[in-house]
């Protein structure tokens, strides 16, 4: 974590962020303008990094993040929570924000993510394919169908014809990953980016059927934003080359 943050801080000088636009003089706030970004929990590492790059490119701007479950964030926005940008982990939760009338314009898809099997280091249960997960006695943990990773799991099950009998249907990918990292579960279904992020604490087993359930990440400017111009620039930073580099390095797919 610390290493990542340090790397991110040192990064921008060499990666030369676009300095084309004038640092929004319209807002006339002078120093210490804050941009509040509500982003899905799975975006924590990448967005923190993009945020640091953005701050370097826009002196005097501070990017403040609130990372949480996409639906929590959508509910908070609809209830009037102050934010400038909302990035969610699936189209359904973004749809809630759109139908709640809290975002401006049409959301832009900036990344995709697919499922991967996570197993404890060394793969003690020797899981090699999606079909292996149905092996009797294997402790498999998945996301509940109510959350995005769980509905993706459902779709893969449907497409592959393999019926899983999980020992637990967790609330979030983080919970699934936790059960795999501690060795409580023999295998879990999480996103490619989660496996990447967990480093040596889990091994990943990719499987072909994951293609049927591609998760898309949309981002949008919040209607009540007090800095709409700056918010739009942040969206551009996410969809632009440097933002996409950060996302790709973390394992996210192209939009």
């Amino acid at each position: 974590m610390v290493v990542l943050a340090t790397a991110a801080c040192g990064g921008p000088s060499s990666s030369a962020p676009p300095r084309g636009q004038e640092p929004v003089s319209a807002a006339a706030g002078g120093t210490g303008r804050a941009l509040t970004v509500f982003a899905a929990a799975s975006l924590q590492q990448t967005f923190t990094r993009i945020g640091t790059q953005f701050e370097h490119a826009h002196p005097g701007v501070r990017v403040v993040f609130s990372f949480a479950g996409s639906s929590d964030l959508a509910a908070q926005l609809v209830q009037g929570a102050p934010a400038d940008v909302y990035a969610s982990a699936d189209t359904r939760t973004m749809g809630e924000a759109v139908s709640g009338g809290v975002v401006e314009g049409a959301p832009v898809v900036f990344a995709t993510n697919t499922l991967e099997i996570a197993v404890p280091p060394g793969n003690p249960a020797r899981v090699r394919s999606f079909a292996d997960l149905a092996r009797p006695g294997l402790k498999v943990v998945v996301c509940a169908p109510q959350v995005p990773c769980g509905s993706a799991t459902d779709r893969v099950e449907g497409a592959s014809g393999v019926a899983l009998r999980p020992v637990s249907e967790e609330q979030s990918v983080t919970d699934v990953l936790g059960k795999v990292m501690t060795g409580e579960a023999d295998a879990g279904l999480v996103y490619v980016t989660d496996v990447r992020r967990a480093g040596s604490r889990v091994d990943g087993v990719p499987f072909a059927q994951s293609r049927v359930a591609v998760n898309t990440y949309p981002v949008a400017v919040v209607k009540r934003s007090r800095n709409p111009a700056l918010a739009r620039q942040f969206v551009t930073a996410v969809t632009g080359a440097s933002g996409q580099d950060v996302l790709r390095a973390a394992g996210f797919g192209a939009p």
């Binding site: 479950g69 639906s71 509940a144 109510q146 637990s168 609330q171 919970d175 936790g178």
Partner: peptide, 27 residues
């Protein structure tokens, strides 16, 4: 409970866990 026991209907998903999960789709 959610950290130690997991969450599966009828086995480990108690009422507070069910509430937290339902909130995702059906407030």
């Amino acid at each position: 409970t959610i950290t130690f026991a997991g969450s599966l209907q009828g086995v480990t998903r108690t009422l507070p866990l069910e509430i937290y999960l339902q909130r995702e789709t059906d407030p």
